[in-house]
Amino acid sequence: MDKVFVSVSHVQKRYARGLRKKVRVLEDVSFELRLGCVTGLLGASGSGKSTLARLLLGLEKPDGGRILIEGQELRAWRAANRGGMAVVFQDYVTSVNPVFTVEECVAEGLEACGKRNGEDSPCVAELLARVGLAESLADRRCLELSGGQIQRVCLARAFASRPRLLVLDEALSSLDVSLQAGMAELLRGQAKDMACLFITHDIQLASLICERILVLDQGKITDNVPTEALFAESGAHLSPALREMLDCTMVFCSRFEDEGHGA
């Protein structure tokens, strides 16, 4: 339960801008992900969240530092564990193949772990039901659906392979609040034997779903705290970036309570 599953140590990433100039996106980022634990990654736009996700998925190589999964190099682990990693992106339009139907799309997740006809694997209809989509959608083209529906198709595809490392990059951002809550519950139910990195800029959603919170600010990890620490009386141990996020949320909450909705 408490074993380190993914360890990211001293990772750096630079992007070339022009011939000589390089922009540092990530500087010396280190953290760990554990099985059975949803870790939230918070940060303002442009703080390097999505870059970190792409590195963690092996879509890009870091310029420095290493990423180990169960003690193995990332790419070696991925090759040995087909379907062991899954991802849901924020941009849903390019997340589904335009010629695929919903069923083909979700079936790809099943195929990833070689469970196409396995007995213990859930069927496509069951996976769709889990994310609150009707079975009748199965033979519709993915692009005919609405944004929130496509995003849930992507979630179903990600869950289909029973990944051990799941990266959700703003994956719930185009869902309405009640669906977000539903997906949060689903995620917590699934999280028992996987490590999940939940990337968002919504601190309330993160505090609902995650057990640990990482804050990325200008390419550096400024906080790595359990979620309860956010609600502690004194915020002295929190970074300025995180405290600012919390303060802004407090403004909303106090307004909500002033109007008489509070408990």
Partner: peptide, 14 residues
């Protein structure tokens, strides 16, 4: 190659 569905397939190990 830059489409997210290709990225998913790469991540899934295809």
């Amino acid at each position: 190659r830059d489409m997210n569905y290709v990225a998913y397939a790469r991540v899934a190990g295809f």
